[in-house]
Design a protein around this nucleic acid. Structure first.
Lengths: 146, 146
DNA sequence: GTCGCTGCAAACTCTTTGCAGTGCC
DNA sequence: GGCACTGCAAAGAGTTTGCAGCGAC
């Protein structure tokens, strides 16, 4: 948004943030990612993690996922796919193999909007929470959705 | 969540918040609702608006919509329906007549999750923003979704 | 050597909460 | 009248930003 094709420098911090994000199949929050990055760069700051995630998102290398729940989560995959969220602990995973393309076209005009895309999120309960071992996160139920 | 079937009092503030929310076809943030409530109760506080929205949501009279964007929005409709979000100004409206029920069942098990429901949000550009009159809200593009 | 990037800390935004007084039932 | 609710203001979470120094190119 703010930046464009300015000269970028390939800093160690930037590499570590991207690398750690891509390692994960689930989608961490900025502070979870900060914790992971710290194991490799102990002095990396949370602000730097945010700045790099923002920048990587602008470059199209990662996705910001701002779905239900208070904290923004980040995704190292940038191809079209959906997510499953645990309504109990807030954990977010990929919903593999599911793509409902036609939806985009089925809704030509809603309330005067021009539709550009859609976002689909499944709500469920994750394996850990099923077994009562859940993190019991205080995100709380994201209202049940639909 | 915290409360249950405790004795509730039908205060003027509570009525005004619910009434103003139901009047709207689009889905306001807490502070937008606060502004509206203030025209009828000039001394109503933002804290009270939040407390009442939270309570009304627990009672199932309104819905919290915590999807993309930083601010939680609220919905006076509680039946199943989807939303359209303007990626430019963040405005949120109903997507009328669209219900894709089968989706709920099509995904029996994803990554070990038990699926309970889904949430579908269309991303587009609202009439005002199309004409360049948009609020140019600083929510910023919610990442484009899918 | 330049200037984009970093760590740090303070600031900001949205939401929640503690408290003493108010008014619904 | 009791006690759920209110206004106010301060506290919390998550995120952003200003600044002086650092280090990639």
């Amino acid at each position: 948004m703010t930046h464009d094709n300015v000269n970028r420098r390939n800093t160690r911090q930037r590499q570590v943030v991207l690398d750690e994000l891509r390692k994960l199949s689930c989608h961490p929050t900025a502070s979870e990612l900060h914790a992971r990055a710290r194991t490799r760069l102990p002095r990396i700051s949370l602000g730097t993690v945010y700045r790099n995630l923002e920048l990587l998102a602008e470059l199209g290398l990662v996705h910001k996922i701002e779905t239900a729940g208070t904290e923004t989560r980040f995704d190292g995959r940038v191809d079209a796919h959906y997510h499953v969220r645990c309504f109990r602990c807030g954990r977010l995973d990929d919903a593999p193999g599911v793509v409902v393309e036609p939806l985009q076209i089925e809704i030509p005009s809603v309330a005067g909007y021009t539709i550009l895309g859609h976002r689909l999120e499944f709500i469920g309960i994750c394996p850990e929470c099923k077994n009562g071992q859940g993190a019991q996160g205080e995100n709380g139920p994201p209202d049940g959705g639909v």
